[in-house]
Design a protein around this nucleic acid. Structure first.
Lengths: 257, 257
DNA sequence: TGGTCGACTTGACGCATATCAAACCGACCG
DNA sequence: CGGTCGGTTTGATATGCGTCAAGTCGACCA
């Protein structure tokens, strides 16, 4: 593996936070100087407005791998933005089966499924050491009244979540295991690009089990298909370090997504 | 089939609109006297507020079966509420395959996937003669500033859409064809109940092809399973007229949803 | 150094669902 | 009345993925 790749991986895995968060309550980072700003905040929001937002956002100390931000059924108080690391959300069916609803990476917002009935419909857990910003929903509502652009932005965020979910529904419904996995790889790649990292080399932050669960497959199938892709030369994979060797081919497998 | 059932079917199929909409521009029906009011409007909204909402809502003449309300890629202007009939939304993959995203019945809201980038991510078509209320998004934004409860309600609606989609993701990912079909039947039944109609006898407003597409199955599998359910005596089915004979059994098949 | 454990890989086999093909049925039309 | 057509049902066969089982690899620890 190249040094350049190592660098990209390290940046991806640890991102902004690692040095910032060594103190218990890190209030130094703010929305205005956050490197993710334009991803998570409305572009339309002016500098003064950002300061107001800053005032309501709570910044947590780092969340260790495996620790929960909230659990299914908890009272809904806040939505969250990922600052570093990866968060997965999942729900348990009445019979106790886990279903992963999404993976959230830096700059992405989650927890919006709790708004409708003031109780979280899913649980959120850190897949690696992560940091998040917590945005209390009450404060957000009040602030939205003063900042129409903020309100619009949140509608847009929720709308995007809806569109994303519906795209996932399409994949799951009628695509083969090959297509699903290729599509996931492309999704991770695109989100990496959005954060100005490599489109072709990154670390899979989740386990094979999580990938399988998310895509509605078994872990064996995921493993087999990743091996097949490797043998075909479209990817290179060592543990969780992924390199896309043939982007065109991946797109083709995914159905030109 | 009983007379009572016939009545229920007719009401379900035609609902409020048929007599109202024979004139070209029907402005008589209003949110305040709409029988669906409490389903689609915020319960918290007061009577005076409803009048304000009334002012921004456009009521369309009936949409004939097969006609579109909007197409994928169209500029986003409004969201819609179903007054009568059934609307399906679907998107086309780059390769041209259709994927149905949802079926919307009276009192339900759709079109919210267009907010994020001002362009509809899906198309909406009437499965039968239907009527809808169109709510211009601009007016809604302005009005929301004056009516905080309206804004909250819309956040809730979108949140519910997210939660619904995520539930669908769970079904599609890891459930058998039997479970999917049983779950769809239960969903239709529950939505009927919500509108104060029969839980056990109603008309399937969509074709077998649509059911198959929505659930990620083939039409043959859908047909076979519906036949099997009939033979087992858990449902009775003649064309699109459905009667649930053994609700417990359906729940059991669906996995106690 | 060797041992254990969890995450992952690989192989053999079976089943659920897709695919292919044909027949049925009601609606509409000449 | 017969003919055609779209939507649906039913049957025979193929296959993709799940299931079960065994094996590999790396991390951690005594």
């Amino acid at each position: 593996m190249s040094q350049q790749q190592d660098d990209a991986m390290n940046i991806l895995a640890s991102d902004i936070s690692v040095k910032d968060v060594t103190c218990d309550h890190d209030h130094r980072a703010s929305c205005s100087n956050c490197r993710l700003g334009s991803l998570c905040l409305p572009i339309a929001v002016s500098t003064e407005d950002i300061e107001q937002i800053d005032n309501i956002v709570l910044r947590s100390r780092p969340i260790d791998k495996g620790h929960h931000l909230f659990n299914q059924g908890d009272n809904f108080k806040s939505i969250f933005a990922v600052r570093s690391g990866t968060i997965k959300t999942y729900s348990l069916s009445p019979s106790g089966k886990e279903q992963i609803n999404g993976f959230y990476m830096p700059g992405e917002i989650f927890g919006m499924d709790g708004i409708s009935d003031f109780s979280h419909a899913s649980s959120a857990v850190a897949l690696e050491r992560s940091a998040v910003c917590e945005i209390p929903y009450d404060s957000l509502g009040i602030l939205s009244n003063e900042l129409p652009s903020l309100q619009r932005h949140f509608m847009q965020l929720m709308s995007r979540e809806i569109a994303n979910d519906q795209r996932l529904i399409s994949w799951l419904g009628k695509n083969s295991a090959d297509e699903r996995i290729a599509a996931l790889i492309l999704s991770l790649s695109a989100r990496n690009v959005r954060r100005k990292f490599s489109a072709t080399e990154f670390r899979l932050p989740m386990s094979r089990t999580d990938i399988a669960n998310y895509l509605g497959l078994t872990i064996e199938t995921v493993s087999r298909i990743l091996s097949k892709f490797s043998k075909q030369g479209v990817i290179e994979l060592q543990n969780k370090e992924l390199k896309i060797s043939d982007m065109e081919k991946i797109r083709e497998i995914a159905g030109i997504k």
